[in-house]
């Protein structure tokens, strides 16, 4: 490998680490709830402290249990969203690309969500 290539590769890695650091600082905090968006539009915000099963449209089902949310069902062929890491108090994102569903942690602001009419029975 040439010296130029080594510099190129090192600078990509350095940029990635720097970006990582910045994002880590930006995202630090206590995440108390999650926001679910479908097609870029908000579907609902749910508290992580309340165990429940949420069906997102007719395509996906996610479950909040023990302060964490996981995607449990999806009608897409690859099921990548089900394998993604649960979103808990340290935040994170779960994405289902084919159905355009995004679940993301929202920092706790002390306010409870009032969107319970969207919930389905457990």
């Amino acid at each position: 490998m040439k010296k130029k290539e080594l510099i190129f590769i090192t600078s990509i890695l350095a940029a990635a680490l720097l970006l990582w650091g910045v994002m880590f600082l930006l995202r630090k905090g206590d995440y108390g709830s999650v926001r679910i968006t479908v097609n870029g539009e908000e579907y609902g915000t749910y508290s992580l402290s309340q165990d429940q099963v949420i069906s997102i449209g007719e395509t996906n089902v996610c479950e909040i249990r023990d302060g964490q949310i996981k995607m449990t069902e999806a009608d897409c062929p690859d099921h990548l969203c089900i394998k993604q890491k649960a979103v808990g108090s340290s935040g994170g994102t779960i994405v289902c690309l084919p159905n355009k569903v995004v679940i993301e942690g929202v920092k706790a602001a002390g306010s409870e969500d009032i969107s319970s009419e969207f919930d389905t029975a457990v």
Binding site: I9, I12, L13, A15, A16, L17, L19, W20, M23, R27, T37, N39, G40, T93, V95, L97, K100, V101, V102, E104
Partner: peptide
């Protein structure tokens, strides 16, 4: 992917994807 789901929170994956790309 960010354009399809119309959500910028996906960009948080950028550092990991940069490293895995290398």
């Amino acid at each position: 992917a960010s354009l399809i789901v119309e959500n910028t929170s996906l960009l948080y994956y950028a550092p990991v994807l940069l490293i895995s790309g290398v």
